[in-house]
Design a protein around this nucleic acid. Structure first.
Length: 886
DNA sequence: GTCTCCCGCCACCGG
DNA sequence: CCGGTGGCGGGAGAC
């Protein structure tokens, strides 16, 4: 049977090869073994059978199975002859393929249903290893990847709980939102361009990246609501790079337009640092190895397909996303968990995404600040930031327009913001009831209780949102960062981090863990983040780093908690946030070295108090949990959630807002994965998104008291970044919502979340020009590859047109006019930002190298730009997409 | 030769 | 000190 499939299947070639090999080498022995294995397999045969069926059903699966099975089958046929020798030989014969992680994962998956019933299925690593005849080490690899997708969660030592794909859609939606916030799309484009341009100097690239934003450093792990990660270790171990890498890798797919990611690009993005070229090399190699591991598991999950892209350099391995593209809105996600993201997505997504985006953005902004390294870049970043800011306002409009579907990306951000705002507003205003209105979508999706939870949080947000000025303020600070504000920002960020969001669904909450470094410290130090996504993460330097540091330090004090807090917070945080992840807290703790534990404690206490208040106030706010580092922040931040605190929060960070927004979607926790890294490197963001379990929520509840519902979910975001960008986003959001609609048209350009800001006429012109220039929209998909520089920029244009249209409307005055109040406010904020170099670092910027720095333009860009960034690619390379499965 | 990526050493970490 | 985890990279099999 299998053989047949093989033949039929695309993989045919390979399969044939394999077969040959198998036959020759493995044949006899192997076969037996396989058979034996099969036999062993038999146990789970049922599943195996299912697999067969499935494979039959799905080509992809078939291929995989083919690969896997084929050997066996063929062998079987052939084997007999060769078998003579069994034993070791046979084993050897088996060939690596038989032992591949992908196959192993297949076998593993065959044992469990995709959508398990409510009853949790317990997985014992030892048993699995035994049954599958593999070393435990291998099982860990699989589990880590599955865990990153929340298909399983660790329940205890050696034990995992199987969730199957029930949470997959949500997780993907969250990852996408997170990825958007981190501007991975932009980064990818940049890298591609670079690659295209020059073959690539890693060093250079990296340098550039760093200069830009260095966003990477932070990693975060996205948690899911039900999925907690119990094991403290989770947090602790450095990073669980595999988990984080897996999430990031998936984010890249979700964020890229073509949904195609080449291995090298992914590896480069995942390598935060770079620093030394040499290191890079080895690092690069290691990353690639890991990516293969992850890719194999993802392939077995049928989420991606391998193929080769032909470029100038030659053929490069790449992967194409074949999983669900549409994801439920974050909120929905929580709610729906459901399998089919697509449907849900439309509605919810926006919100969720927006939230996420907001968060990130903010974080990004903060990060961007870090950027001081290259003044030039800073300038750019600043511009970008401005743009972003501007755009943000506009974005709302987009949201409106796009929110729904097409505009996705662009609109997403805006939408998210808008949504968040709306939610917040509603919540805040009506506090609970009204909130429902906005949430409606969410609420509808989610059970009432959840919504309720959500609402509370929203309220605070709303309040913020309501007052554009307020929002601005927050942003301003961000923006302000540039100037002096920056310092504050960090603080803000930290606060933001802890934000709790109510969980829409029961499961809802997610936590994002950020690296400490990424957290604010850096952010504080540098505001730049905005410049590029990449950079955004930078902050690692955090404190130390100088330039900013000083300011940061100063500000910090003011901000107090925030600064020190990050670290301290983290440590402390455990308590506060503890619920979900004590472990997380743990890690942070160590990190936090700094000292201000006291502060942290204080902060925590405050936070708790706030939380309590907040919680109370909010029904079930979503909370953002920060890492221990954040914890402190949370304390500070926590307040934000609360209404009064909200303002503070806003001031502190936009992030909170964003977070809230996001929270609305899905709670996310941002916890610093890595403990100490903070200091310098940070380059790479390391984060793992973890769903926060209700438990955690509960804990929060305890803290907060709100108790609102179990559902509540909390999100943690890395404030740092979020703060910066988010600010804009956030601000926008509120307004955005409204705006967004209008923008919708613009929205059309989906892709990036850009903000819809309204560019000034000039901008429009500008854009138009670009468009003309750019024109190539189509190409984009071609693989994502880097368009060559210019091309890239242009690429987006295609989208822009729409945006342009919109823009025009908006354009009048970039900010103000365009949208009702908020935008304006934003603008002002931006300006400050603008002033500050730090602030600048908008990611978008990177997209468009283009000339237009003008914020307005930026806005324009953003609008279309986001897409543009993505779009950009177009020109260049052609990817070959031949699918190959190997 | 290059691409994949398995294997398993060994560092961590929590207990 | 021990056992569970999991980073990491050598090196070998697959092309």
């Amino acid at each position: 049977m299998l053989g047949r499939w093989f033949c039929l299947s695309p993989n045919f070639f390979k399969s044939s090869k394999e077969i040959r090999r198998d036959d020759s080498s493995m044949g006899p022995f192997t076969t037996p073994k396989k058979r034996a294995e099969a036999g062993s397999v038999d146990p789970w045969t049922p599943t195996s059978n299912l697999k067969m069926l499935i494979s039959a059903a799905s080509p992809e699966i078939r291929n995989r199975e083919k690969e896997l099975c084929m050997d066996a089958d063929d062998r079987d046929g052939l084997d007999p002859t060769q078998d003579s020798e069994n034993g070791d030989e046979s084993e050897k014969m088996i060939s690596r393929k038989d032992k591949s992680l992908g196959l192993l994962c297949h076998k593993f998956l065959a044992r469990y249903p995709d959508y398990p019933d409510s009853v949790l299925t317990d997985i014992c690593l030892d048993d699995v290893a035994t049954e599958l005849s593999v070393e435990r080490r291998r099982i860990y690899d699989i589990m880590n990847v599955l865990e990153s997708l929340h298909m399983v969660s660790r329940s205890a030592k050696n034990r995992y709980s199987w969730h199957g794909r029930t949470k997959l859609a949500e997780t993907l939606a969250i990852l996408r939102s997170v990825g958007e916030t981190h501007r991975y799309g932009q980064q990818m484009q940049q890298i591609r361009q670079r690659v295209a341009d020059r073959e690539f100097d890693f060093s250079q690239e990296e340098k550039e990246n760093e200069a830009e934003g260095g966003e990477q450093k932070e990693l975060f792990f996205v948690e899911h609501p039900g999925v907690e990660f119990k094991a403290a270790s989770v947090n602790s171990r450095k990073d669980k790079s595999l988990r984080v890498m897996s999430q990031k890798f998936v984010m890249l797919f979700l964020v890229s337009n073509p949904h195609v990611v080449s291995l090298d690009v992914a590896a480069k993005i995942l390598i935060g640092e770079d620093h030394v070229a040499d290191q890079d090399k080895s690092k690069f190699k290691t990353k690639v190895r890991r990516l293969y591991d992850i890719a194999n598991v993802l392939r077995s999950l049928k989420l991606i397909e391998k193929f080769h892209v032909t470029e100038v350099g030659g053929r490069k391995p790449a992967f194409k996303w074949i999983g669900p593209v549409e994801l439920p809105p974050v909120q929905d996600l929580s709610k729906s968990s459901s399998e089919f993201p697509s449907q849900k997505k439309r509605v919810l997504e926006p919100s969720v995404e927006n939230c996420a985006k907001n968060l990130f953005p903010s974080s990004g902004a903060k990060r961007s600040f870090t950027r001081h390294p290259s003044l030039i870049k800073l300038a750019k970043s600043i511009q970008d930031d401005r743009r972003k800011i501007n755009s943000a306002p506009s974005s709302p409009t987009k949201c409106v327009l796009g929110d729904s579907a097409n505009v996705d990306v662009p609109s997403k951000m805006a939408q998210l913001a808008a949504i968040c705002k709306i939610k917040l507003d509603q919540e805040s205003r009506p506090k609970e009831t009204p909130a429902a209105t906005e949430r409606d979508p969410a609420a509808e999706r989610l059970p009432p209780p959840a919504s309720g939870h959500m609402d509370p949080p929203k309220v605070p947000l709303t309040a913020q949102s309501q007052e554009p000025g307020v929002h601005l303020t927050p942003r301003t600070p961000l923006a302000g960062q540039a100037a002096g504000a920056v310092t504050f920002i960090p603080a803000q960020c930290s606060p933001l981090i802890p934000v709790l969001l109510p969980r829409q669904r029961g499961n809802g909450p997610y936590a994002v863990y950020l690296h400490p470094s990424s957290l604010r410290s850096n952010a504080l130090s540098r505001p730049q983040p905005t410049s590029l996504a990449v950079r955004s993460m930078t902050f690692e330097d955090k404190m130390g780093q100088s330039p900013n540091a000083p300011s940061a330090a100063k500000s910090r004090p003011a901000s107090r908690e925030s600064d020190s807090s990050p670290l301290t917070l983290k440590r402390q945080r455990p308590g506060s946030t503890a619920e979900s992840s004590p472990s997380k807290a743990r890690r942070p703790d160590p990190n936090f070295k700094d000292g201000s534990p006291k502060l942290g404690e204080i902060l925590q206490a405050r936070l708790k108090a706030r939380r309590g208040a907040h919680l109370v106030s909010r029904p079930s706010p979503r909370a953002l949990h920060l890492d221990p580092e954040f914890v402190n922040t949370p304390g500070g931040a926590a307040g934000p959630t609360l209404e009064h605190s909200l303002e503070n929060l806003l001031e502190r960070d936009d992030r909170p807002v964003t977070s809230d927004l996001e929270a609305g979607f899905t709670p996310v926790r941002a916890v610093p994965l890595t403990p100490g890294q903070i200091h310098s490197e940070t380059l790479v963001p390391a984060g793992y998104l973890i769903p926060i379990s209700q438990q955690s929520l509960i804990s929060y509840k305890e803290l907060q008291n709100s108790g609102e519902e179990s559902n509540k979910s909390s999100y943690i975001y890395q404030t740092p970044t979020a703060g910066s960008r988010s600010a804009a986003a956030l601000e926008v959001t509120p307004t955005n919502l409204r705006l967004s609609k209008p923008p919708a048209a613009a929205v059309s350009s989906p892709h990036q979340p850009s903000r819809v800001s309204c560019p000034s006429p000039a901008i429009l012109n500008f854009t138009l020009q670009n468009l003309g220039l750019i024109s190539s929209p189509t190409g984009a998909f071609g693989s994502s590859q880097p368009p060559e520089g210019a091309g890239a920029a242009l690429g987006p244009l295609g989208l822009q047109p729409r945006g342009l249209v919109f823009i025009k409307p908006v354009s009048p005055v970039p900010v103000q006019p365009a949208l009702p109040g908020q935008p304006l406010t934003l603008i002002s904020l931006q300006q400050p930002l603008m002033a500050t170099p730090k602030a600048s670092g908008l990611p978008q910027h990177s997209f468009f190298h283009t000339p237009v720095p003008l914020s307005p333009l930026a806005a324009m860009v953003t609008v279309s730009g986001q897409p543009a960034s993505r779009t950009v690619y177009v020109p260049q390379r052609k990817l070959d997409v031949s699918a190959e499965d190997s």
